[in-house]
Design a protein around this nucleic acid. Sequence first.
RNA 1: AGCGGGGUAGAGGAGUGGUACCUCGGGAGGCUCAUAACCUCCAGACGCCGGUUCAAUUCCGGCCCCCGCAACCA
Length: 479
Amino acid sequence: MARYITTTLPYVNADPHIGFAVELIQADILTRIWRQSGETVFFNTGTDEHGQKILQTSEKEGRDIHEYVDHFAAEFERLNGTLGISNSAFVRTTNPAHIEAAQEMWRRCHAKGDIYKKAYSGLYCVGCESFKTEKDIEDGRCMIHTHLELQEIVEENYFFRLSKYQDAILEYLDRPNVIVPEWRREEALNFVRGGLEDFSISRDVSKLTWGIPVPDDDTQVMYVWFDALTSYISTLGWPSDPAGNFETYWNEGKILQLAGKDQVRFQSVMWQAMLMSADIKNTDQVFYHGFINSGGQKMSKSLGNVISPYELVEKYGREVTRYLLLRHVHPVEDSDVTWERMDEWYTANLVNGLGNLVSRVMKLAETHLSEPVQLTPYDTRVEEPFIKLINVYEFQQAMDLVFDHITKGDEYMTTYEPYKKIKDPETEDDARTHITQLVRHIAKIAAHLESVMPETSTAILTAVRSNTKPENLFPRLPA
RNA sequence: AGCGGGGUAGAGGAGUGGUACCUCGGGAGGCUCAUAACCUCCAGACGCCGGUUCAAUUCCGGCCCCCGCAACCA
């Protein structure tokens, strides 16, 4: 079966966040597992590059806007390489093809009667150049620009008739697996039952200049939704579909989206309503992951507790970063990571665990076996329970399964003492049998790690096939 | 106000209607193939109060704390 998987598109206004790295890695592991089992997978990610905030930042830095977003897009694309992400496409919302798709999406919803213009009034802060809602206001003033009067501004914007889709969305959310975890589906249902209001989908061109023009109205520019969300299908070539990817992966394939837990109303409500309006098939499933905190607090620049994915890769390398973010970050709950704990996990599980086991086994094999152990198909087959756990996003449990085998290997070594038996001619053959078993055992472990740590997996299998003890797979951290 | 999540050994985390698991840390042994690694044993925990049940940490209700969200800010 064909499968489509996409991450959300990060807004390029800031450096890549560790939370997004988790999303990429989860998507990548799923993709690799599926590809291993012979499925064809289209794995999309990319960047969301429009918006006044981005334009302002570029101007503040005195940079050309195009050059500015190119820079950030390149930065995010580099992250994929850095993390070893096997994505099929990288969509940018500034791509001409995407811009056309967003406009076509708009036209279709408009033709359906789901887009209308209405006056919108709000308190506008000249300092922020944006409308303020109640919680941004203190003593009648914007909290950031307390010296400026807020202005009551009335402007016309386009709205999307979300309210019309209330029942249809409830029906959609009634399908058991459209949202994982299940309790977020309840959350979404509650939200929708509370009543859906139409939402504004454009801004006056005087307020928002860096965005996709609204078709047939040059006074208005699309505000985020039709722009960003449409990228999930524009990346497949929708609407013209020159390569047939939209047909294969969206219409005929199974559609999975990954997103952060705050995205429920956008991905599972607004976007789904937009798809309904445009008569396009809905997303089959959205998986919502949790957030990552550090030291019990949200990561923030002011607290100085931000851990960037690049720092992780710099310290531990790509493979270990993938391991850490997959095994020690809860799939759906919020998690807390600190450098101290990551060091601990690295040393305990990879240095002392996996790395050491491979060393001790391969040293014995290299010394006492005259030729490489012949691996059977069983030895390198990934077991069903592991695949099942990955498919239901139980990444930690899947990894626990693999790491149990590392402990088992160490126990086996202690129980049968091949290093001792090999010295006695009486038990020498016995010892060789045990060593062979151990070699096959680490090959099995390596096979299971292929999707998570592809290079490590290969290194172990290469060692096994050449019957040589490899260099230390995981160097000890400096004291 | 409301909605959602959580409170598990000294620390950080999994998990489950019936011997509660992992990592670090503490104590006592063992081993020497290995990256001063590995193995064994010991001490130590399910926020509080009710209910359902033969049996609850796990299900239900209440309470107390913590944390998010609260609509166009991951």
